[in-house]
Design a binder for these strands. Structure first.
Lengths: 184, 184
DNA sequence: CATGCCATGTAAGCGGTTACATGATTGC
DNA sequence: GCAATCATGTAACCGCTTACATGGCATG
């Protein structure tokens, strides 16, 4: 069985939904997965091409009224099999997420206290903004989402984002506090 | 002022410490920054070359007894200035950290419950192992570190790792719980 | 004399972004 | 006629990993 990159599996996964074209895939990711995934057209179209070449999906050109034609992709049994195999497989190893702020803090020894404080406070503020957008999205889903089944998965991934962001905010608060106390 | 990538700034930062060679830089990152940064020789040596070309550092070949010669790099005033400017600058925007588990969960709608549960449990276990290594490192630092100043920064970045990991573990627990309840 | 650590480097290739090119349709 | 949205695609480039190549020195 051939191995593919995460982007390919993400696209295969999306092709199980109503989103069948490159443009629609981009929209779905930007709107629904944007807090833990992103993608560019420069990846999407070549990947779709490859998916068809490998017999994981088939293209059909759909003519819609009032809009340009779109190429719609449909998973083949082989494509579904490939996706399923990946879904069942546990994650190999936890990735190291690079953190620019931690890096700056680490070298902050050789920098002024105000400067380090400013960077941390700015980071905290950005995290708080992100948290707020998560809360807003959550409210929007909870209040008007018809599809209960979809809503659960949505809220679950959103919950991850909220928890992770909150933990980072708490860390900022605590670090700023002890950093202030620390005499230089 | 020219812009550099994060790797370049990371190396400039390390060159302010006692680590002055490519090999030593790799060691420091693997040992001390491994929970939020990583690097390969394939980046280090070409980047060091570029750093010298741009006048941010100078090389001197140091002969040590009992070991092969090593090229040691020393920051120039221009290099120090470049580093400082970066350190002062707040992070532009929070990166989207791609999460394979969330992706799998999101497409889990079309997968068996056992399969999704297994992936989540495996993820949780890996997170717990990571947490434990953080705790162990923390203990090691607290018990025998002579340099108080260094220890604070060390523990601070480690604290971030602990909080982030713990938040992810909690999310796993909660998700597994509600997922179990959820009838299909 | 083999293993392991110290040390430096390069080349191929992957994954991804950005910028660009093209063009249809809709609504102001 | 112009802007916005829908829609597909490519080329250049960046960042990074992996695999490979080379060789000194030390120890058992």
């Amino acid at each position: 069985m051939k191995k593919y990159n995460h982007t390919t599996y993400a696209i295969l996964g999306i092709l199980t939904t109503d989103c069948k074209s490159g443009y629609a895939i981009k929209q779905l990711i930007d709107q629904s997965l944007n807090h833990f995934w992103k993608i560019s057209y420069g990846q999407i179209y070549p990947t779709l091409k490859k998916i068809v070449e490998d017999g994981l999906a088939e293209v059909r050109t759909a003519a819609t009224e009032g809009k340009p034609d779109r190429n719609e992709y449909f998973l083949t049994p082989k494509g579904i099999e490939t996706l399923k195999r990946w879904l069942e497989q546990p994650v190999e190893q936890l990735p190291v997420e690079r953190n620019e702020v931690l890096l700056k803090l680490f070298f902050g020894r050789y920098q002024s206290k105000q400067s380090t404080t400013r960077v941390l406070e700015d980071y905290k503020q950005k995290l708080e903004e992100r948290y707020q957008t998560y809360v807003n999205v959550e409210q929007a889903i909870k209040s008007h989402d018809a599809n209960q089944e979809d809503a659960w998965y949505w809220l679950c991934t959103l919950d991850y984002g909220k928890r992770a962001t909150l933990a980072a905010i708490d860390w900022c608060t605590a670090s700023l506090e002890t950093f202030k106390r620390k005499e230089n």
